[in-house]
Design a protein around this nucleic acid. Structure first.
Lengths: 103, 103
DNA sequence: ATAAAATATCGATATATTTCGATATATGGA
DNA sequence: TCCATATATCGAAATATATCGATATTTTAT
C-alpha cells in the first residue's frame, strides 16, 4: 500500500463522524432492520447511516463518497437505494501498512 | 487508549511532513551526526529536523509540539538544544488501538 | 552587560475542511 | 406524463489547518 493511499485513508479517518460510521458498519444491528425487499442484500442503506449520524443528507452523501474514494467502504446501488458496507480487505491492508510505516 | 487519544494521533498523522518526521526519526542516520557534546544523547536536535523537512523553523516547532501533544514523540531540552525521539510505546499502543477499532 | 544561537510563541494569510440548504439526478409508481 | 422518494452535486459560509515572518524567550559565551 503506497504513501498516497495511506494518506487518503488517514484523512478519511480524521473526522469523528466518518470514524463512527466505520465503527457502526461493523455491526448491522446498529441500524434499523432492512426493508423486506432488501433483506438479502449486504450493507446498510445510506439513509439509515444519515439518520444515525444526525447530519444533513448532503453531508453524509459526501462523506460516504470520501470513505469510498479512500477504499474503506464499498457501495452498491439497488433501485433508489444505495447501500454501503466496509471493505474489510482494504481496512486490513491499511492496518498492515500503517503498522509497518510506524514501527 | 481512548477515543480522543486516537483522534489526536490520527490528526497528527494527517500531514505529510509530520508523517515523514516520524518515519525519519526511526533511523538516526537520516540526520547529520550529533555534535560531540551531544554524542551520548538520545534523539535528534530539532534544528536538524527542520533542515531536513525544509520548512520554516516556526512551522517545525509547532509541528513537533503537536506530535508531542499527541504522544508520538518525547522531547528533552539540553542547554539551547531540544531533542526529539519517538515514543515507541505510545506508537505501539496506538497501532493496537486503531487495529482494534477498525477490525 | 552585550551579543549570539537555538527554539518557542504570536499574528497573519492562504488554503482545506465541515456542514448546510438548494438543486439536480436517478429510480419507481400511478 | 406527473409525482414521489432517495441520493448526488453544487455553492456558500464558518471554522480549522498549513505555513510564514516577526518577535519573544531561553541558554550560553565574552
Amino acid at each position: 500500500m503506497d504513501y498516497d493511499k495511506i494518506e487518503k485513508i488517514v484523512a478519511a479517518l480524521n473526522n469523528p463522524v466518518r470514524r463512527n460510521i466505520l465503527f457502526w458498519l461493523k455491526d448491522r444491528s446498529n441500524f434499523p432492520p432492512a426493508l423486506p425487499e432488501h433483506s438479502d442484500l449486504e450493507g446498510v442503506c445510506v439513509g439509515y447511516i444519515q439518520e444515525k449520524a444526525g447530519l444533513s443528507q448532503s453531508t453524509i452523501s459526501s462523506y460516504m463518497n470520501l470513505l469510498k474514494q479512500a477504499g474503506l467502504v464499498i457501495s452498491e446501488r439497488h433501485g433508489q437505494w444505495t447501500f454501503f458496507r466496509r471493505d474489510e480487505k482494504s481496512i486490513q491492508a491499511f492496518l498492515g501498512a500503517i503498522g509497518k510505516e510506524l514501527s
